[in-house]
Amino acid sequence: MRINYPGTIRIIRLPCTGKVDVIHILRAFEKGADGVYVVGCLEGECRFSNGNLRAKKRIEQAQQILDAIGIGGERAQMYNLSSADGPRFAEYAVEMTEKIKKLGPNPLKKAKEKMAA
């Protein structure tokens, strides 16, 4: 399968999405990411029983914080798919990329430029 997905995405591999914490998501935005999405296994199919469910709740927490500080919670999102489902992986990558493009760049980038000027 030679499926293409947008080159704007930087993949960070994890043993399980259960490893993701709120701070990881926030740091990504702090460093300038325009959006962060976590792709976990299908619900009910976590190898460690509920790693992906934990990730989901942590994304929700991060979304709340992002809303509160004016970055926007919709820039963080959780997806679930089977590890064998390459086409869907690409589909989600496109979907997320389009969504972030619509939202525009991370507002912190502009803020940083202003600050430097």
Binding site: L26, I69, M115
Partner: peptide, 21 residues
Amino acid sequence: KKEVGILASALRMYFLNEGKK
């Protein structure tokens, strides 16, 4: 420590976004 880190990150972003140093 963990909650300190999260709050610090959130506040840093908030202030930056507000254009405050």
